[in-house]
């Protein structure tokens, strides 16, 4: 991946310049603040920039989608967040959104409508799939050619929204060997982060969920564990470290695979 900094405009900047973006890139909290997830954010930006889509971010006007608050039972806080975001999105007359976070994706797609927020939102893997299918993005395997990749389904992309094929479709375009875990697609095992578990210690048990899932992924002896969620990324990275396999197996987002393979 190149080191050049791509100028990313905010909605406020675009609106001030009298411009309208084709799509809003919803970055999410993890993508904005987590050092590892920021790399995924930048990979998505490189893809958008490469295909020449005019996009904008909300920047400091973006707030947590409310997902962790809602799943943790704090409906008040969730609705405060949701309505604040809806007010902002509606003010900018946003129609189409892409996001790298399946949790933001799910909440905005399925839960914002009942509070007055109606947008067409896609997960970045869906957008990339569309770009490839329409010929706007040509991909090649590059450094990943022939590598063994196993894809971990994020719960909020897969089971929650039935998106199973888009990420797989893209990965296969990279000329790699796509391996499947026994528990995949609708039977995929959670990474352990969802339901606000990301923000608290696990209850007493025999094992971390991330360890269980990483063990399953590593049993395929993959070069790469591909993910489509910044939280899964954290959890799977932890899990791989638990088995001291970080030198053999990398955990990468599908967006990073595309950006790296194509020197974006």
């Amino acid at each position: 991946m190149s080191d050049k900094i791509i100028k990313v405009k905010t909605m406020a900047e675009m609106t001030a310049a009298g411009e309208t973006p084709e799509i809003l890139f919803w970055v999410g909290c993890s993508g904005s603040f987590d050092d590892r997830a920021k790399k995924i954010t930048k990979a998505i930006v490189r893809i958008l920039d490469h295909v020449g889509i005019k996009f904008a971010i909300l920047g400091s006007e973006e707030g947590c989608s409310g997902d962790p608050a809602k799943r943790a039972g704090n409906e008040f806080l969730y609705q405060m967040q949701a309505m604040q975001n809806i007010t902002t999105l509606n003010m900018y007359n946003v129609k189409k959104i892409v996001t790298g976070c399946p949790h933001c994706f799910n909440t905005i797609k399925n839960e914002y409508p009942s509070l007055g927020g109606n947008y067409e939102i896609v997960h970045h893997t869906q957008l990339v799939q569309e770009l490839i299918n329409t010929g706007k993005l040509k991909v090649q395997g590059g450094e990943f050619k022939g590598k063994k990749i196993v894809f971990h389904d994020p719960c909020y992309l897969g089971r929650a929204n039935n998106v199973y094929e888009a990420p797989r479709d893209i990965i296969q375009k990279l000329d790699v060997e796509l391996a499947e875990m026994k528990r995949s697609r609708a039977n995929g095992l959670c990474c352990g982060a969802g339901g606000a578990q990301m923000f608290k210690e696990a209850e007493k048990g025999t094992k971390e969920v991330s360890t269980e899932r990483a063990e399953e992924a590593l049993s395929n002896d993959p070069d790469i564990i591909a993910v489509g969620c910044p939280f899964c990324n954290t959890m799977m990275t932890d899990g791989v470290k638990h088995f001291n396999k970080e030198n053999k197996t990398k955990v990468l987002d599908v967006a990073e695979l595309i950006a790296k393979a194509n020197d974006l």
Binding site: S32, C64, P68, A72, L77, A196
Partner: peptide, 30 residues
């Protein structure tokens, strides 16, 4: 821990203690 997460969201719009004003800082980083 969840209470902390709630107050972070309430005060700075993210589940962690980062300022909302810094949300786009990544755009300036390599």
């Amino acid at each position: 821990e969840l209470n902390n997460m709630f107050s972070n969201i309430e005060n700075n719009g993210a589940p962690w203690q980062f300022s909302q004003a810094d949300r786009a800082n990544w755009t300036k980083e390599q």
